[in-house]
Nucleic acid binder design. Structure first.
Length: 480
RNA sequence: CUGGCUGUGGCGCAGCUUGGUAGCGCGCUAGAAUGGGGUUCUAGAGGUCGCAGGUUCAAUUCCUGUCAGCCAGACCA
């Protein structure tokens, strides 16, 4: 094999060839995660965790700006609590992990590892709430939860995953509904502005809604392979839990009332979304907003006089405002480093070598378009800052185009079958909203109702799948 | 959970059919040169073949079980 053949592609399976393998190659080779000895449990390595920290930082700020406070509830939940809300247990029981022993002694009541914390939080809320003056409760926690999954993939579906879960109580249904939609909107903005990941927002079908919810709202993103990813959900839980857990308060008129309840969450799954929305055959493409390293400085011929010094100088100039690193490793060639950092998705690369120093310039490379540009040193920082902004915007645009290209309108069941077997992507179609019809679509095409979008379009009067009267327009897709 | 494939130094693989206790490439370590798209030379280190049983004088190789990974379903954030 000649020099020219030894390219990046040798490392990563092209996505057109095998998308699943591409994903696995990318996450392992870019050091985001590793497999642990326990099935379905992943180790998030520093480079992957840094992405999560950036997501956390942004979202935590948004939560606090809207009046929420963080707290922490226990990992273990007594079985009796989990069972209090009937629909909820039924939904989660099959995937719950149980603690049955403390040391050698069997516990009198087994404890489940939280699959989500509604029950334990409601138990505590019932102790805390007394008066309408105490409302609203606006709490959030950052933690991990465990769901014993049958087939797992790092970030997309793991038995343990990191997330945040907000749990709020309100006086009225309207207020709870407003909270539910407000949080979904914050999720949408996070996806679009921070992750450059366009999403469709709307309501889940009865079948797909959260176990125990009155209504579930969701944001759905479309991946490069045409599959949809549920990227975040916000639930209006009505009074289902607050009555089951006997959470009550005295209202303004002196009457005992149950409050209205919401919960909402996003998880490390978002990272899987970023990878599959922006990535290409060279590896990751990280939006500057969450990239652990926004700019990497690669010194060329670093042993020559002044090069390292100049690289350090640029670093010092950048570091306050741009997450920057100097790659001064001596044992790798510049070409090797270029490929390495491209694979790791660093948005901007600064190349600085003897020739540049002579000309008072540096070479800038942007990961999204793979373009190079020569820039005078005195404009370098502002140019990089501009590039980062530009890349962030461009990634969102590109992703929107990709999604639009893979979004279809469907008027007949045959068209739907055709799209699901070939192209794959989002399908917009009218729908009767009946469970039976939903099951049939799933069985015959593999697609599920992703959501009933807030932005409705009228495509006709009949449901193309069962010929009954259509009630709404819905998005359908195969999902992760 | 069902079906298929896989498991051999850090990574990717060969060897197994016809049992006789391991080999290649990359990486790693040391030194030197090189350095603008995965650089070259020299010298080294490193595995008992996922795990547990079984068959056999002898198992990486054959058999059984089990664990883990991948793919496709079913189920689910």
């Amino acid at each position: 094999m000649g020099k020219k053949d030894k390219q990046f592609v040798a490392e990563i399976t092209p996505m057109e060839k095998d998308f699943a393998q591409w994903y696995t190659d990318v996450i392992l080779k870019t050091d985001l995660v590793d497999y642990s000895p326990v099935k379905g449990f992943m180790v998030i390595k520093p480079y992957g965790y840094a992405i999560w920290e950036n997501i956390q930082k942004y979202m935590d700020g948004r939560f606090k700006d809207t009046g929420h406070k963080n707290c922490y509830f226990p990992l273990l939940i007594p079985e009796s609590l989990l069972k209090k809300e009937a629909e909820h247990v039924e939904g989660f029981a099959p995937e719950v992990a149980w603690v049955t022993h403390g040391g050698d002694e069997e516990l009198a009541e087994r404890l489940c590892v939280r699959p989500t914390s509604e029950t334990i939080i409601c138990e505590m809320y019932s102790k805390w709430l007394r008066s309408y003056r105490d409302l609203p409760f606006l709490y959030n926690q950052w933690c991990s939860v465990v769901r014993w999954e049958k087939s797992t993939r790092p970030f997309l579906r793991t038995s343990e995953f990191l997330w945040q879960e907000g749990h709020t109580l309100h006086e009225s249904y309207d207020e709870a509904q407003e909270e539910t939609l407000q949080m979904l909107d914050i999720y949408r903005e996070t996806a679009e502005e921070l992750l450059a990941m366009p999403v469709v927002v709307g309501q889940k079908s009865e079948k797909e809604k959260f176990a125990g919810a009155y209504a579930t709202y969701t944001m759905e993103a479309l991946m490069h392979d045409g599959k949809a990813l549920q990227a975040g959900t916000s639930h209006n839980l009505g009074q289902h839990f607050t009555t089951a857990f006997d959470i009550s308060y005295t209202d303004r008129e002196g009457e005992i009332k149950n409050p209205y309840h919401t919960s909402w969450g996003v998880s490390t799954r978002l990272i899987g979304g970023i990878i599959m929305v922006h990535g290409d055959n060279r590896g990751l493409v990280l939006p500057p907003g969450i990239a652990p390293i926004q700019a990497v400085i690669v010194p060329i011929a670093a042993h020559k006089g002044g090069v390292i010094e100049k690289a350090d100088e640029i670093f010092a100039q950048f570091k306050e405002d741009i997450r920057t690193e100097v790659d001064d490793r001596e044992n790798y060639s510049p070409g090797w480093k270029f490929n390495e950092w491209e694979m790791k998705g660093v948005p901007v690369r600064v190349e600085i070598g003897p020739k540049d120093i002579e000309n008072n310039q540096a070479v800038l490379f942007r990961r999204d378009t793979l373009e190079k540009e020569i820039v005078p040193l005195d404009q370098l920082k502002e140019k990089v800052e501009g590039l980062l902004e530009d890349i962030q915007n461009n990634l969102l645009l590109k992703a929107k185009h990709m999604r639009d290209e893979k979004t279809y309108y469907v008027k007949t069941f045959d068209e739907m079958k055709d799209i699901m077997s070939n192209n794959q992507g989002f399908v917009k179609a009218m729908w009767c909203q009946e469970r039976e019809c939903e099951d049939k679509i799933k069985a015959e095409t593999g697609a599920t109702v992703r959501c009933i979008p807030f932005e409705q379009e009228n495509l006709g009067d009949t449901c193309p799948f069962c010929e009954k009267e259509a009630k709404v327009m819905a998005y359908f897709a195969k999902a992760y």
